[in-house]
Design a protein around this nucleic acid. Structure first.
Lengths: 204, 204, 204, 204
DNA sequence: CAGTAACCGAGACGGTACGTCTGGTCTTTAT
DNA sequence: ATAAAGACCAGACGTACCGTCTCGGTTACTG
């Protein structure tokens, strides 16, 4: 069992890397993930196939990197909000705002196709799934944990509540509706989720 | 554009159908979905490839049908109550019981491999996804809706709560943890979900 | 090794047999031998595939029988000449007449397609080849042998000449030109063959 | 209607080409032409199927090229005189010698199987047939034409004889006997053919 | 400032699976 | 019992991609 020699990253062509990213994202959006082949990415990027296989182990990894890059770049363009959940003191208001922004993102076709493709691949390809969760999902979820902890400090959430579980009450339903088309997605829906989660279903 | 002639279903070989189901489920469990090829299913089932292509449009559909059949058959073997949520009068107890049973099922490797594979394929293959949801997910969710409505009648759930949304507070988090490995699955976890969902996060 | 039970020939459908013959000849003429499939013959003849496989071992045999039948039928229709080479007393004249008739037949598209197909199959499928030769070729050649012997009796051919070989001097060249397209076929050509064969190439 | 892109012949693998030739010839000899499949050739040659389809349009063309190559190679090995008919001054002797050599070749199983297969395919597949004739048959026949012309110059053949037709008197009968098994092949037979052809059948 | 080593575009290669087609057998229903 | 119909097992077809490899050519370090 020999490791393949590690290529020299310093000599890597940045132009090719970006062209591959762009081609991968474009193809996924245009023809869907399963029909997005490595050959097609290479052809579209004007790149040899080997240049892809040299730097990525699979097309899923190409797409994941391209998508992460897209996220980073978009964030940089938007500039402002350095990925925190606002803290106006009113937890419900803050959560609703963030979830509404998430709704917008989930419905943006630029994000939808690759995100869904990566999620799907991640279900079945465990290493990729773990990377997807670790690099994309967890950082987001951590922000909710932080905000919920701050709310606990302020007495707006019961102290015995586990924030890591609590956040799933409003995040997971939205995720499932989006991923599996189990229901429509709207501001009203996410607002309702926040209300239910904060105050429960049982009468007070 | 010509439709291919519809084969005569009355002359279909039931033996072959079952052999194909079994082979498909076995292969998915053994080598995973992507490596489960139509050729391998045919070979394992002792069947010509054409017999698969005659009756199913794709391997995803074979697997979906096999899985639905497996579910129906398992339910038939278990015999008794064909999937209802118990109604002891104590909503929390009933939900926790059902979710614990769900946890068991999700961790049963017989179910896990094909279920995950189908879920993944469904994310990216919309017709299949819709069928997956309609035939497998929704029937389950409807049971929760019924139980929650009964709880509303009993005054255990606020009457203005939408049951279809409410059930997602405990079902979706479990689904997401299972699908995306975003956290461990246990009885304790599902119990907690029920408690949080019923009573909310905010102090009373 | 079991022999398959011999079907009862007395109950055989004559209508089907003829329909299969016709379909086979028509298909060979229309789409060529390699594209003439048993399925297509059956469909065109309005017959089940099994009816073909019950009575013939292969499509080549179907075609051979159909072709022999066609020959017999044509001969019956033409009526007159009961397959003999005329004997006017002038060997050269007689041979030229028969060869000119053969040229006409070889250029008749009704005969060309199946005859060529059978010849080709016969090259590679030895049992069929032998049957083709025995049933079609040899009877024809025997007529030449008879005529040449009669010529020997009349002193028009040297008595030490082997008629079975002698006939090949004019028959085989024509056959090869036709089969392999190694040269054009015409009355002039066959007349020349007869002249060369009878009098040789060397000056007298 | 798009042409498929022409592959770059300079990068072609000579090793693969030869392996395919060898496999094709071996298989035809072993199992016969119809059972020689492209898949089997590829497998035996240790080559991907696409490598065959990239360079040849059909298995018949593979075999034709392989056979031509074999002929060229054999000729090269034999070394000396690259296929001429000897000219000792005695036409009969020369022709008999060449035809005896041809008999040997026709009975050599290394040549027989592919040659027969190609001839058969050529009957039914016209482009291939034309190539077979042009590349294999005609060059041989041209040698006879030359020798006959030389004989005409020497006064051993009548000057009004067409050599292209004359050669068929002894070549075609041999060809037909070999191809169609219409009679045995032997030195005695070919000697007789030459005698008959040169001096005719009619008494002098 | 040549020499040389790596990456690069290109694409042929050995493979695997695809979805289709046909061969020859078997089964069902009707005559 | 034969026939029409057609589903069945089997396996080759020709295509599409996979991931590896080999080929010049073009940078961009090194001696």
């Amino acid at each position: 069992m020999v490791d393949k020699p590690v290529p020299d990253a310093t000599r890597r062509s940045e132009k090719s890397r970006r062209a591959i990213h762009d081609a991968a994202l474009a193809l996924v959006a245009e023809v869907g993930y399963p029909k997005t082949t490595v050959e097609a990415i290479a052809a579209r990027a004007g790149v040899g196939k080997q240049t892809i296989y040299r730097w990525w182990p699979s097309k899923a990894d190409v797409l994941l990197e391209a998508f992460l890059d897209l996220g980073a770049q978009t964030a940089r363009e938007l500039g402002q909000e350095p990925y925190v959940i606002p803290d106006t003191g009113d937890l419900a208001v803050d959560l609703k705002a963030v979830l509404r922004a998430t709704v917008d993102e989930l419905l943006d076709p630029r994000f939808e196709a690759p995100a869904r493709a990566l999620a799907a691949e991640g279900l079945v390809n465990e290493p990729l799934g773990r990377e997807f969760v670790a690099k994309l999902l967890e950082p987001q979820l951590r922000l909710y944990v932080d905000r919920l902890r701050s709310a606990q400090d302020a007495g707006d959430v019961r102290p015995d509540v586990d924030p890591r579980i609590a956040l799933e009450l409003f995040v997971s339903p939205l995720a499932q509706r989006w991923l599996q088309h189990t229901g429509p997605i709207s501001y009203e829906y996410t607002d309702t989720l926040v209300d239910y989660a904060l105050h429960g279903l049982a009468p007070r």
